[in-house]
């Protein structure tokens, strides 16, 4: 039972993305300087992601180094390259930057073959014991069924729907990976927070209707709806 040294968390960092179209040494520096001078505070020490997906032709590794050097000189902090061609991977590593996959790669793939996204569906997660304060349950890639109470201070999450057959007093987050069709069903609505696909409402709003009653929660556009069951 040693003390935990760290915790891993996912987070989204705000960064400036630079789409590089072409490069010639003097011109690039001048244009970048001009751009930064328009809003020096905005760009000061800003993390920068270099997007190479729109680059016209083949970027040479020494040119990439120059781009990065210019950015650093002008106060930006280049941290990663997006959609880098294979021959630059070594150079990017040498520059101490990360390689990111092209952002649109996944969307095009889904459009091309939507069936591929449907992985083998997981069995719905069923929990019979109460979820106590401080506990967290996550049904990854599936629905979540809770047969007993979800206490205040507990958190239940699912990629799909959530069903609660005891009182729901904690937090319930359905569709956490962005499924806007996910719903929450419960027999006794007393939640601290309910969320669908990242949109949420709090306890004070929930008290206005169906409080302690059977209710369902769903998303309509960008607003959370609570309705009697």
């Amino acid at each position: 039972m040693t003390d935990v040294c760290f915790q891993m968390k996912g987070t989204a960092v705000t960064a400036v993305v630079m789409d590089l179209y072409n490069y010639s040494s003097g011109v690039f520096y001048e244009q970048l300087k001009q751009k930064i001078d328009t809003a020096p505070h905005f760009f000061n020490a800003s993390p920068l992601v270099l997007n190479l997906s729109s680059y016209d032709g083949l970027l040479q590794s020494e040119h990439l180094s120059q781009v990065v050097a210019s950015c650093r000189e002008l106060g930006l902090q280049p941290m990663a390259c997006k959609a880098a061609p294979e021959h630059l991977l070594g150079a990017i590593k040498k520059l101490g930057m990360a390689c990111l996959p092209a952002s649109n790669a996944r969307t095009t793939k889904i459009e091309a073959e939507p069936v591929a996204q449907v992985e083998s569906p997981r069995a719905t997660k069923i929990i019979t014991r109460p979820i106590r304060s401080g506990q967290q349950v996550y049904a990854e890639g599936s629905d979540l069924i809770l047969m007993a109470a979800v206490s205040e201070g507990a958190e239940v999450l699912a990629d799909g729907h959530i069903h609660v057959y005891g009182p729901l007093r904690g937090r319930a987050l359905a569709g956490v990976k962005g499924d806007t069709d996910a719903r929450i069903f419960c027999r006794q609505m007393e939640a601290e927070l309910v969320s669908i696909a990242g949109y949420f409402i709090l306890n004070d709003k929930l008290r206005e209707q169906c409080w302690k009653q059977p209710a369902q929660v769903y998303l309509e556009g960008e607003s959370i709806q609570v309705a009697a069951l």
């Binding site: 304060s133 206490s151 201070g153």
Partner: peptide, 23 residues
């Protein structure tokens, strides 16, 4: 009551019985 709820959660997750799949 809230703290008792918390300790009940710990009982059923961090005890030897719980680790062995019991309660």
């Amino acid at each position: 009551v809230r703290d008792s709820d918390r300790i009940l959660g710990i009982l059923q997750s961090k005890s030897l019985k719980a680790e062995q799949g019991g309660t």
